[in-house]
Amino acid sequence: MNKHNISLIGFMGTGKTTIGKILAEKMGYDFVDVDEFIVKSEGRSINDIFIEEGEEYFRDIETNALHKILEGKNQVISTGGGLVLREENRRALLEGSFVVALKASPRNIYFRLKDCDERPLLKGAHPEKTIRTLLHKRYQFYNKNHMSVATDKLSVDEVVEIIIKEINK
């Protein structure tokens, strides 16, 4: 385990970006969002990549982006919700960072994301059902971590403090 990088994993809407930015600031680390890294390097949105190239292509560039990012140090890394689907990515995260899984109930995730148009996997007729299905499929992967925090009933600052306390043990 490498504590020079902290990776936040979890389903979309669990707070990875919001918590990650504040955690990075408090620790004096750089904040790196894997999806933003991909958007910059590809010159197009995640949505466009999914539409034009498909999910498998996106997962390939996501894996490459993760490896490049993990070469750095003193970073808080916010991963995309599906990054953990590949064994190679899970292994790289666990070896190259302190992995924190952020968790939330399907209902809370739905309410956090219901007005967001930039989530390609939630474009269907029943987004809450899709969230439950995807969470069920990904549950085992989100449990491959060094610690996990349920974000449902905690403020952002409380989650950040819990993570910092654990890292400083």
Rank of each mutant, 00 (worst) to 15 (best):
M1W: 10
N2R: 15
K3I: 12
N5D: 09
I6Q: 03
F11V: 00
G13N: 03
T14Y: 04
G15H: 06
K16R: 15
I22L: 15
I22N: 03
K26A: 11
K26F: 08
V32D: 02
I38E: 00
S41E: 14
S41I: 07
G43Y: 04
S45E: 05
I46W: 06
N47D: 13
F50W: 04
R59Q: 08
D60E: 14
E62N: 07
E62P: 01
L66K: 01
K68D: 13
G72P: 04
S78G: 13
T79Y: 11
T79W: 02
T79D: 04
G81A: 13
G82C: 06
L85T: 11
R90C: 14
E95I: 07
F98E: 04
V99G: 02
N108Y: 08
I109Y: 00
L113P: 03
D115Y: 11
D115A: 12
D117P: 03
R119E: 06
G124K: 13
G124F: 06
K129D: 13
T130Q: 14
R132Q: 12
L134I: 13
L135A: 11
L135V: 13
H136V: 04
K137N: 11
R138D: 07
K144N: 14
V149P: 00
T151A: 08
D152C: 12
S155M: 14
D157S: 12
E158I: 06
V160W: 03
I162P: 02
E166Y: 14
